[in-house]
Design a protein around this nucleic acid. Structure first.
Length: 579
DNA sequence: GCCGTTTTCGGCCCGACTGTTTTCAGTCG
């Protein structure tokens, strides 16, 4: 992804300038632009060619010139110069907790230290304490920070973070002092990966809450313990913070600690224009300091003339403007989902029988599910003759089931040339056909796009499964022109999947939003290979909400009849089909 | 470096905490 390279270049420029002591607002400008480019869904080269860089949020004349230089020549002269002044290895110091740009520069300038190993040695030998502003305590903190850096997970998957948060909340809620408990931060925003878990507790007596928190099973190390905030290092190397606030400030604190940072900054800037100060205790009118909101989140937003904004939308991507226009969408909720259209049974690589899956789905309250086992050439794919047997079996099963309908289906492989691994005659037998790529992912964007578009020509394809092939933290998405895919999906009436498996979440949030913009239908499927995986639906819905999707944008919110209509709309009618 | 219902200059979110300080700089979320 070229966009990532440009973003990284801007981040490096920002970091190096910060280490050199450049104006912090300037540094922020580089980081904001980098962030905007990282989340951009169109290739940056296009923006350069069409002279549209200034349309990107936070990109002005100067940054546009640097981006253009980088795209044209692969280099940026200013960056090369900066690297001469600041060894790029110093950037790693910024990842050490309690170590920032000023300290990084100090140890380099005075002691010539350029690597973490040298830094640790100098701290252990007591050579840092003589530097201005430093002392023995700082040396200790730097040594500890380096240890933390080695043992702390970078970011963990959403489901792992939720599991830990649910456990901690389940313990704290038993305390009579805890009036309200809310998971905040990126967890509440359902971001695909979580850096640390923030839990907010409303209480008038925080000590017992903090005591219990830091002594929970699974706490590896206590990083800080106070009456308003405590931090621990939890299993999986995940940092968990608990913050205690008084109930009358709970709304303001919930807003503040949910973020995102960019959303909060925009909100405060808006506050300033209205003569208001916003902090974690409330909204205050300046200069009298009169408190006008804070007990509820709704009140905080209302004080700013805004509708309440769902946490998943709080990324400063236009939600504040939408709230001002009173145009916040009615986002999809887990309860809107009527069925799961992507499930594997033990006929392929799943672990459960079809009956067991159906029973579990009834308990969730679904009206229908689709069994979509793999096709060959995957080793665990079900052979055509067995797929026919499976269809027969499911039809028989349906005769005895009153509470749920099992749709017959398949997840058919898209081969390297865009043809499908099963013939049309067999495909026409299924209620649901998901077409997915599982091999040969290293192609040019153009070839990959042609491959998927060709698969979409097949009249039996209903859904493109995990459309970008990424595995979070393990495998990059393949190169593909998603805009072209989304446009075709919209015109053809093919759904693109939000694969709800927390290791995929594919499509991701921005692409989901692109689908909404172009009117391409979405299917949220869990890709369950076991009964417990059916619960992944909440992560898929979370991703959909981050993409601003409403129930009508998602096909598996529809009742059975409407889903069936959707599934057969592209198929040639039986009468006109020859043979 | 960006940006504009404070519009081409002068702002840019806000508070807590820590360690080093005698009034504050650095870091964090």
């Amino acid at each position: 992804m070229r966009n990532d390279k440009v973003a990284e270049m801007l981040e490096e420029l920002g970091d190096l300038k910060e280490i050199l002591g450049e104006n912090p607002f300037k540094v922020r400008a580089y980081r904001r632009a980098a962030e905007a480019i990282r989340r951009l869904t169109t290739p940056i080269e296009e923006m350069v060619e069409q002279n549209k860089l200034s349309e990107i949020d936070g990109v002005g004349e100067s940054l546009a010139a640097k981006i253009t230089e980088f795209i044209r020549t692969g280099k940026v002269r200013e960056l090369e110069e900066l690297r001469g002044k600041v060894p790029p290895s110093l950037r790693a110091f910024l990842d050490i907790p309690d170590m920032g740009p000023r300290t990084a520069w100090l140890v380099y300038e005075r002691l010539g230290i350029t690597t973490i190993e040298e830094l640790e040695r100098a701290a252990r030998e007591g050579r840092l304490r003589h530097l201005p502003g430093m002392g023995p305590k700082k040396e200790e903190n730097i040594i500890r920070g380096i240890q933390l850096l080695k043992t702390t997970a970078q970011r963990v998957r959403l489901d792992i973070a939720w599991k830990i948060a649910d456990y901690i909340i389940g313990e704290l809620v038993l305390l009579p002092q805890a009036k309200l408990i809310l998971p905040a931060g990126s967890l509440r925003r359902m971001k695909e990966t979580i850096g640390d878990v923030d839990i907010l507790v409303a209480t008038n007596d925080s000590e017992p809450v903090m005591d219990k928190f830091v002594s929970l099973d699974g706490v590896r190390d206590v990083l800080a313990k106070g009456t308003t905030k405590s931090s621990v290092l939890f299993e999986h190397g995940l940092q968990v913070d608990v913050r205690a606030v008084h109930p009358e400030s709970f709304g303001a604190a919930a807003q503040y600690f949910t973020g995102s940072k960019d959303h909060n900054i925009s909100l405060r800037e808006r506050g300033i224009k209205l003569g208001l100060k916003i902090n974690e205790y409330g909204v205050f009118r300046e200069p009298t300091d009169e408190k006008i909101a804070g007990e509820t989140e709704e009140g905080v937003y209302e004080a700013l003339g805004l509708l309440w904004i769902p946490p998943e939308m709080r990324e400063n991507r236009g939600e504040i403007e939408a709230a001002e226009r009173r145009a916040i969408p009615s986002l999809i909720e887990l309860d809107d989902i009527r069925g799961d259209l992507h499930i594997h049974s033990n006929w392929s690589d799943g672990s459960e029988t079809i009956e067991a899956l159906a029973k579990a789905a009834v308990e969730i309250g679904y009206e229908y599910i689709a069994i979509t086992d793999h096709s060959p050439p995957l080793g665990w794919g079900v052979k055509p003759e067995d797929l026919r047997r499976q269809i027969t079996q499911i039809r028989k099963l349906n005769e005895h089931l009153n509470d749920i309908l099992i749709l017959t289906g398949v997840e058919v492989d898209i081969l390297h040339d865009g043809t499908l691994a099963l013939d049309d005659e067999l495909l026409s037998e299924f209620d649901v056909v998901i077409a997915s790529i599982h091999s040969q992912m290293k192609m040019s964007a153009q070839k990959m796009t042609e491959r998927i578009l060709r698969a979409m020509e097949n009249p039996y394809v209903n859904i493109i499964g995990h459309p970008t092939g990424r595995l979070i933290g393990q495998r990059e998405p393949y190169e593909v022109d998603m805009e072209a895919i989304v446009k075709r999906a919209a015109s053809e009436g093919i759904a693109l999947e939000i694969n709800a498996s927390p290791e995929r979440l594919d499509l991701k949030d921005e692409h989901a939003r692109m689908c909404k913009d172009y009117g391409a239908p979405i299917a949220i499927g869990t890709d369950a290979h076991a009964i417990v995986h059916l619960e992944f639906m909440k992560y898929g819905v979370g991703t959909a909400r981050r993409g601003w999707l409403e129930p009508s944008d998602v096909i598996n919110t529809k009742p059975v009849k409407a889903v069936r209509e959707f599934l057969i709309q592209r198929r040639p009618s039986r009468r006109s089909r020859k043979g």
